[in-house]
Design a protein around this nucleic acid. Structure first.
Lengths: 124, 124
DNA sequence: TATCTAAATGCAACTAAGTTGCATTAAAGT
DNA sequence: ACTTTAATGCAACTTAGTTGCATTTAGATA
């Protein structure tokens, strides 16, 4: 689906800032932080946060905090879990892990923390 | 195990700030943020963060970020997962959920996000 | 028990994320 | 083209978290 369609589908105004932001998030293919993006965007940071917030309200983007105390944003495509490595702080998307079911709860996202594959191998 | 024993076991200096901090965290029985604690502690915030950091290095405390963009700290007792509700922002400790195994990874902590039991019931 | 030393603390200054109010601008319907 | 409402830029602000430095304290040793 095209970026402009995603925005219009939710009845949001199609502004240049929103196109720019969603395009960068979409290209990234992994969660990125404000720091990652701030030099690439033309808009003010207030606009950045207001649009991120709008996108989150409309389930276009979701976010979570990593170990480095920064918030990471990504386009909500196919639902998937994330693995955050406590050693190297890398964030990986886990496409093939089906989230555990918890009776009574609705599980939307699962974040695993621990030691990633490559850090495990390094320490053999 | 007593609080003073926990600190001494890791060969950390037993200071009054550390005793105070660990006592509050231990009594809380659930993860708490700096904001939750700042009016209860006598120490400076620099001391708070330095001690939290020491405790984390020594696996006495672990922390994670919630939906409200604040970091939550808790004493590492029995390993357990957490559920963060996207609706009411409540953090629950899940004592009886065994973390999923991921081949090649070492899973230390799992954070589930979604809609908690009571919010689910409210929306029936 | 007095002395010593490294580590811990308080304080102040700082950085950076995120928020808010307000005046201006631009999207989209008529 | 006109109008209205929402989006934007800017500046000021709040708050979490960090850092350097002078002072204090835990705890080891004599």
């Amino acid at each position: 689906m095209k970026i402009t369609d995603i925005i219009e589908e939710k009845n949001l105004k199609l502004t240049s800032a929103r196109k720019e932001l969603l395009e960068i998030l979409n290209k990234a293919k992994k969660p990125i932080s404000f720091e990652d993006i701030k030099h690439k965007i033309g808009m003010d940071k207030a606009t950045f946060y207001r649009n991120i917030s709008k996108f989150e309200d409309n389930s276009i983007v979701n976010s979570f905090e990593s170990n480095d105390k920064k918030r990471y944003y990504e386009v909500q495509s196919s639902p998937h879990s994330h693995f955050i490595c406590n050693t190297c702080n890398t964030i990986e998307c886990l496409e093939n892990v089906s989230p555990a079911k918890l009776v009574g709860y609705t599980v939307i996202d699962v974040i695993y923390k621990g030691i990633c594959k490559s850090c495990n191998e390094t320490n053999l």
